[in-house]
Amino acid sequence: MSAQSLLPARWPVPGVFVALVLTVAIGGLVVAVDGGQLFHQATVVSLLHVAAGLGLVAVGQTLVIVGGSLDLSVAYLISLSTLVAAETMNGSDGAVLPAVGLALTVSAGVGLLNGLLVTRFRINAFIATLGVGLLLKGYLDNGYDGPAGVTAPTLVRTLGYQRIGPVPLSFLLLVAVTAAAWFTLARTRFGHHLVAVGGDPEVARLSGVRNDRVLVTAHVLCSLCAGLAGIYLASRLGAGAPRVGTEGLYDLESIAAVVLGGTALAGGRGGVAGTVGGVLLLASIDAIFNQLEVDAFFKQVIRGAVIIAAVAVYARRALRRGRS
């Protein structure tokens, strides 16, 4: 197998960005006709905050999906991370670093468990990560009836609400994490091996790739991204929230963003830049519908239709490439 064949796409399928531009342009026009203003600073800030939380999870989800795996435990892990961070801080600025460190350590532990279940015990990733998610759900439901802990004021002011112009610091964190993930996929041996494992595990193994180690690392990185999202949400809410992850549908939404960005669910092809495009597309649809006060049920119908259409387009492209 040549080194070139192991390289991921240098840039995502551009269709998601075309869809994003068209959505924003048409949505802005419709909102203006309705008497609203889509490009008001408050709307843009809100959109970027939504994108920051979902984007952090989706970037991690991209890594495991590129490797041919999946993680359905991220929503529950996000909720757990908000609680670990907020309860450790307990309103103290001096406890921010220990709280962040502990939340990320717990997240890495969950990712390690997911990875070992998938690789050592050969459990299907869907079942393994769903099972871990249900374990976390049981702990959260049994231990918490509502918000718990108090986030440190400094973290709330900075990561939660501070911004540079219309750009929140949380979105800049997403940009940094995305850049690091892109570099990992495109410029490191681990990234090349991850793409190879997702493309054809047996060929990768015969080429000397340690498949199990690569997938375990990908799951740990995915959980770390979910942990970061939990810390961010704790800073926004000012407390730990045992159901914020599931209520936000971060598991399914992150997978949807990955698919919209052009990453193949079967693994072996995709990239994080396209995922961010998918995240921005979903956040833009939400912003437009919120401005138009569209019914929540209809909003979900439209989002589902967009995802199905995107998958259909990518499937047709893959079929054409296979015939050529």
Results as ranks from 00 to 15, higher is better:
213 R>C: 04
125 A>R: 00
37 Q>V: 00
275 T>K: 03
35 G>R: 07
8 P>Q: 11
58 A>Q: 01
141 D>V: 03
56 L>V: 06
21 V>T: 07
108 A>L: 15
29 L>E: 13
149 G>W: 15
192 H>F: 14
5 S>H: 14
193 H>Q: 15
312 A>L: 15
195 V>I: 07
278 G>R: 05
318 A>P: 08
295 D>T: 13
242 P>W: 03
28 G>I: 06
130 L>R: 03
106 V>F: 03
182 W>R: 07
218 A>W: 08
267 G>H: 08
197 V>R: 10
43 T>D: 02
258 V>E: 10
148 A>V: 11
245 G>N: 15
274 G>K: 04
109 G>C: 12
266 A>S: 06
187 R>T: 11
307 I>K: 02
271 G>V: 07
74 V>L: 13
293 E>P: 00
209 V>C: 11
296 A>F: 04
112 L>V: 08
85 A>I: 02
240 G>T: 05
254 S>M: 05
227 G>M: 07
156 V>H: 02
22 L>R: 09
279 V>K: 00
144 Y>R: 05
165 G>N: 12
299 K>I: 00
169 L>Q: 06
85 A>Y: 03
141 D>A: 11
115 G>K: 01
237 L>P: 01
160 G>V: 13
136 L>I: 14
228 L>W: 05
120 R>H: 11
150 V>Y: 11
43 T>L: 02
303 R>F: 05
200 D>S: 14
116 L>Q: 02
